[in-house]
Design a protein around this nucleic acid. Sequence first.
DNA 1: AAATTTACCAACCGCCTGACT
DNA 2: TAGTCAGGCGGTTGGTAAATT
Length: 225
Amino acid sequence: MYQQNSETGSLGRVVKGSWSDEEDDLLRKCIQKYGEGNWKRVPERAGLNRCRKSCRWRWLNYLKPSIKRGHFNEDEVKFIIQQHKLLGNRWSLIAAKLPGRTINDVKNYCNTHLYKKHSIENIPAPATNTMTHNTSSCVDRPESSATIKEPKWWENILVELQREEKEGKSQNCSGLDFEQDNLGQQDPNINDGMDQWLNSLKEVPNLSYQWEENLLDFDVVNLWA
DNA sequence: AAATTTACCAACCGCCTGACT
DNA sequence: TAGTCAGGCGGTTGGTAAATT
């Protein structure tokens, strides 16, 4: 028979692929009962033949009540672009500053939109070629590509940001660019510098809501104060 | 109308890190 | 100190709907 182990839940056979409504329900009830964490035991507790990572991923990216659905608005896109320029592919850090948005959302969004515009707008291309424009389950898929294509307002944002940068007008992230550019050009240990800097960001208690107060007033210089 | 291509998103994989023993 | 394990992250892939030919 199947052997029980921590990765597979009650049976040794791991289920892969799309999550069914029933599985979602089981996982949701399990988390409600036992709370988040201890993912090793979640498959067993929930009665799911999913690996712990799959359970965790499903909860964090789709089932968690705080997740914000739907399109990224202009402010969010602008913020993502700025942060991506600053932080690179550190999706978790970027997503952490966007309340309700998941790492997967941000990552997919950047990967598609920024990558597509890379050749035109000279924006550093992410490593992959996928995107998440909205968060929807595998069953319910409300946004069509046609819907997404129509406005293309995000392209305008990219153009605007680039223009502002050239003109030296980008107040909100000029400081950030300065830090990064200098590190990149002069400091061979750029990653070490960035890591140090990022660690310091974690120490700032109100960073997470600063962008909510005023996205474009995000100023790294003040973080050091 | 059918076939093909493109675009998008959900999901998985593999690696890294930190905690624990 | 080394080994193990769980959590977390970034990269990548596969399936499907939409658009195009």
